[in-house]
Amino acid sequence: MRAALKVFLAEGYARAGVDAIAAEAGVSKRTIYDYYGGKERLFLSAVAETRAGMEQTFDDLLRRTIDEIDDADDIEAALVAFGQAFATEVSRSSERAAVLRLMIAEIRHFPALLDGQPTRDALADRLRDLDKRGLLAVPDPAEAAEFLGMLVTGPVQNRSWYGAVAVEPAEIERLVRSGVRIFLAAYRAT
């Protein structure tokens, strides 16, 4: 999988050859066909495995930040901590940025890449819980999760050119704080 991902990221799907992937992995071409049936399934598997790792990291982040909210006084600090960690990861992970660019390039040919939004759904679950506890007013948790994600990562992604240019930690914090303030202006329980 790692070898396939490396070749797909370097060459794109169309130019990546099974021969190159086999050579990178140190296996025979036949082995790849025996396990995956072909380049398409290998590609989808490599992207899915990479996304699963990113989703686990995201879930761990949610547990360390948003799941720790006890009362209304904790919300802003927890959302800022979440946003800073998430935005920093998004802006500094060259693999994440490369996988995102690859998915964007190939989405027309592989619409299955759009199936599911596990990170949005995991965040929506947390926001739904905060709504039920009366700590936020979130009529549509999936939409609110999407907005929060965009507010804390969008400006950082734009300034980092999707991970190509470093953004200073102080700038990330400033941008995230602004995004959280906007989010809370819309969703804070009254």
Results as ranks from 00 to 15, higher is better:
Lys39Ser: 05
Glu40Pro: 01
Glu40Lys: 15
Leu42Met: 13
Leu42His: 09
Leu44Thr: 14
Leu44Pro: 09
Val47Trp: 10
Ala52Glu: 14
Ala52Val: 01
Gln56Leu: 09
Phe58Gln: 04
Leu61Asn: 01
Ile69Asn: 09
Asp73Ala: 15
Asp74Phe: 04
Glu76Thr: 07
Ala77Tyr: 02
Ala77Asn: 03
Ala78Lys: 08
Leu79Ser: 03
Leu79Arg: 05
Phe86Asn: 14
Ala87Asn: 08
Thr88Met: 02
Glu89Pro: 00
Val90Thr: 13
Arg96Phe: 14
Arg96Val: 02
Ala98Lys: 01
Ala98Trp: 00
Leu102Met: 06
His109Ser: 14
Ala112Pro: 00
Gln117His: 11
Pro118Cys: 06
Thr119Lys: 14
Asp125Lys: 05
Asp129Ser: 12
Leu130Gly: 09
Arg133Glu: 10
Gly134Cys: 02
Val138Tyr: 02
Glu143Met: 13
Phe147Thr: 12
Gly149Ile: 03
Gly149Phe: 04
Gly149Lys: 00
Met150Asp: 10
Val152Asn: 10
Thr153Phe: 05
Gly154Ala: 04
Asn158Lys: 12
Asn158Met: 13
Asn158Ser: 12
Asn158Gly: 08
Trp161Val: 11
Ala166Glu: 15
Glu168Gly: 05
Glu173His: 12
Val176Gln: 02
Arg177Ile: 10
Ser178Gln: 13
Ser178Met: 11
